[in-house]
Design a protein around this nucleic acid. Structure first.
Lengths: 220, 220
DNA sequence: GTTTGTGAAGGATTTCACAGCA
DNA sequence: TGCTGTGAAATCCTTCACAAAC
């Protein structure tokens, strides 16, 4: 925790540590299962028990956690409540994040109405669309703004995450606008491989591609 | 192609080949970009051009393709139309697939109404919900059935893919029912790590987890 | 000249296996 | 005894580099 100490626990700055991306991507999984265990009243958990639930080897779980500190007790395992708090801190989930969404078509409306983001600390505080007929209308309590307002709104409202739900043909331009506005992370629902600078994180959600790789194994 | 020949091209049976999963997961990406190139009228493409568009090294693309055959011509690259046809065949995308969806809440309705599946050959031919108030109603032209009908409907309608859009608490039971019914692939939108037998493929879509790993890099 | 296909090298990730501690 | 944390080993994946083909 304390900056300047010998490295034993994580100091909060990703740049100081070189943690593989694959490890970071598994942390939310640990947060989820630990949160469930905590609400069940489970006090301590071993890496083996976690592995059973997550279909992972205990060794991988221990190794992953060891990138950030020593959270367990030999012979006993991990304290569920303490570990979930640590992991949330590491991931930056001990605060809330403002997001905006671009594209208020069918998909965008479904996303903005999805009740699963807010309880996890992600607030969609602004919505944009290119269609002047939509601008000014309200969707689920959020006023739809013109794309030209992205720059102003992102800095004004402290928005660090952009959600892209526009057609493929518009996606790169929208993503460029979000990057220009200073966004740091993008959740992209458009079926494109977008170009972003190194300092911007992007994740793609494409159910069609997920299905398309599973059919490989379905064939007979 | 021809069974019994020396191995030069892919014979259609995944079991005969040991292709890393990561490679299979990239094939739909190639299909997508090649399809775009084809509709632009592009005739030939090199691994370097593909790499530029996909942010991958040309070597990785060539290596990936080499698991399945020799599709390129030295000095010229790949024929766009021919390669996309080959890859679609390998992935089983040269036919259409029947899917069902379980859970007709907000999310399930959005998914069943999503117009992106059908053009890619995925037809949602049945919908299920546990709520008796919903059973018998129509959602986007599909009649909602009771969960007890899963077994019968899956075999009757030749359904090989199940889409799960139920609350976390119901997900494992629904997935068990789909597996029992003989489904081979599951697209799971519920925030759980589900247990499935080895012969069933499952992919999870969880936008919250995607956001939760990106915040790691956002902090300052 | 250009670009593929591919063994070999290099790098990244996972698993092993055990010392050390409760 | 039970379980963590971690170097070392093993495995998996990517990149290199070049002969062969056009």
């Amino acid at each position: 925790m304390a900056t300047g100490s010998l490295i034993t626990t994580y100091d909060g700055d990703p740049d100081n540590l070189d943690v593989p991306d694959v490890v970071v991507e598994r942390l939310p999984l640990y947060v989820r299962v630990l949160t469930n265990l905590a609400s069940d009243g489970t006090d301590m958990v071993s890496s083996e028990q976690l592995g059973d639930q997550l279909h992972m080897t205990p060794a991988q779980i221990r190794k992953d956690l060891s990138y950030f500190g020593r959270f367990g007790k030999q012979g006993r395992g991990y304290n569920v409540v303490a570990l979930v708090a640590q992991l949330k801190g590491i991931l930056g989930l001990d605060r809330s994040w403002n997001a905006c969404i671009v594209g208020m078509g069918r998909l965008g409306r479904a996303i903005i109405s999805y009740p699963g983001f807010a309880p996890e600390g992600f607030k969609i505080v602004a919505a944009f669309d290119a269609d002047d007929g939509l601008v000014g209308t309200n969707v689920d309590g959020t006023r739809v703004r013109s794309l030209s307002q992205i720059n102003h709104t992102v800095s004004e409202d402290g928005i660090s995450i952009g959600i892209v739900a526009v057609p493929a043909s518009a996606a790169q331009a929208v993503i460029d606008a979000l990057v220009d506005a200073g966004i740091g992370a993008i959740l992209n629902y458009a079926p494109v491989t977008a170009h972003v600078p190194d300092h911007v994180k992007i994740k793609n959600i494409d159910p069609v591609m997920s299905l398309q790789s599973m059919t490989y194994y379905l064939k007979r």
